[in-house]
């Protein structure tokens, strides 16, 4: 029984490690960690601290902004690499883009995906223990 339990726990840990590391795929110019935010239920605001790491091809002036609303998160002048931490909170996936101020061009786009664990929301919030 305990062997089965240990085996099951090992499987859990392995699967969880995989679930966490598969989000870490790099992009060339705009890296984001983590790229997924997981909430318990659909419609729930998902919170996470997202770290953007930018490695631009040339020194210049750049801005990070939301793709949909075009809201600027922050701009950097006369630089090639920089980091930015976003206090992310959303009920749905949001894309962000890196723009060059000189070229007025979008250099890279990345998306923070919002997923949820439960497909069915619990109707009852109690246990039948007794």
């Amino acid at each position: 029984m305990y062997f089965k339990m240990i085996s099951f726990c090992s499987l859990l840990v392995t699967s969880m490690s995989y679930a966490q590391t598969k989000d870490e795929g790099p992009t060339e110019i705009l890296n984001v960690m983590p790229s997924k935010c997981v909430a318990l239920n659909e419609g729930r605001t998902c919170y996470t601290d997202v770290k953007f790491a930018v490695t631009a091809p040339d020194v210049g002036d750049y801005c990070l902004r939301e793709s949909g609303t075009k809201k600027i998160l922050q701009c950097w002048a006369n630089t090639r690499t920089f980091m930015y931490t976003l206090n992310f909170g959303s009920t749905e996936s949001i894309s962000y883009e890196l723009i060059s101020k000189q070229k007025r061009d979008t250099l890279a786009v990345t998306t923070i995906e919002v997923n949820w664990v439960h497909k069915i929301k619990s109707k009852k919030r109690r246990w039948r223990i007794f």
Partner: peptide, 20 residues
Amino acid sequence: LQLQADYPIAENWVFSAGAS
């Protein structure tokens, strides 16, 4: 009286703890 806390550890994984 029951109290439960759930947290999404990762996609498909949930941690739960509770007392009653």
